[in-house]
Design a protein around this nucleic acid. Structure first.
Lengths: 152, 152
DNA sequence: CTAGAAACTAGAGTCGGGTCTAGATCAAGA
DNA sequence: TCTTGATCTAGACCCGACTCTAGTTTCTAG
């Protein structure tokens, strides 16, 4: 039922160092309990929270923001509005990231394809080489295909 | 035709500090030229490259990798295969990021919606609160809806 | 009983990616 | 001419997020 820090590290994918660090940083809702000998004990809920936490982190939420959230939770009922707002802000943030990545991806695919064509024709040197005299012309060509974006 | 560092900073969105830093780090294909008085001069191509560079950065490519790429470019023709490979690796990386963000987003939306329902019913305290005794039960409920993911 | 693994604390170190400072030089306008 | 502001260099500093160290204590197996 109770989990030691080592197990939690293994199951959460975080290092034991990171777990202690997260605790110091106030990222656990329930201040971690200790055994009489001082060792930390964790429970399944902690693992669940760490899973969420890890997702938030990997989607770009800072530890500071996660701490804000958890502080609202600790204050108990009455601030639901703020919690929701915080979550929605992150939602928007993630949506924006996805859009940007998608855009980058489109540009890259386009470039890779063209690059590849030219490699086949032995002219690769002209592409993706900003110091080459033809680079600008090539960029302009791309721009014609993607008129909404700045040229590259 | 020629641009000063200030103009480039303004148009690229990078600081003058960052531009000098990027130069030190070898992130320009064509080592930046100088006026007789030592001042840097840039051209449109540099701005184009910086735009690409910024996209690569914001999609998670490290400066080290960008440097690798630009080094291949500087070596001239003959390594197209490596360049393409580098770009494709990043493409995959970006695709993976998008998938992960999308997943995070789905989970968040689900949680926000449920949270909201409960706020309306005045039971918000039970949700997204890992220290609350009902948290695990709630997580399990979610898991039924998203069986492929770990419960939160 | 003892060796080795695992945990503890406080605090120092690392790394990426910049950012800022100090002190010097230069250019243009009032 | 004098001031203002942009630029230059080398190098120090910062921030976020960990990671590692040192020194100590505790648990577990043989």
């Amino acid at each position: 039922m109770d989990l030691g820090i080592g197990e939690v590290a293994e199951r959460s994918g975080l290092s034991v160092h990171a777990l202690r660090f997260y605790e110091r940083e106030g990222l656990f809702a329930n201040p971690v309990r200790r055994l009489s000998n001082g060792r930390r004990i964790y429970h399944e809920e902690d693992l669940e929270w760490l899973a969420i936490c890890t997702k938030l982190r990997s989607s770009g939420m800072s530890l500071a923001t996660i701490r804000q959230y958890i502080e609202l939770v600790r204050q108990g009922p009455g601030n639901e509005h703020e919690r929701l707002e915080l979550l929605r802000r992150h939602e928007n943030h993630v949506e924006a990231q996805i859009r940007e990545l998608q855009e980058t991806l489109d540009v890259m695919r386009h470039k890779v394809r063209i690059y590849q064509d030219h490699v086949v024709r032995g002219e690769a040197d002209r592409l993706w080489n900003p110091s080459h005299p033809d680079a600008a012309a090539q960029a302009t060509t791309h721009q014609e295909c993607h008129p909404s974006e700045g040229g590259t």
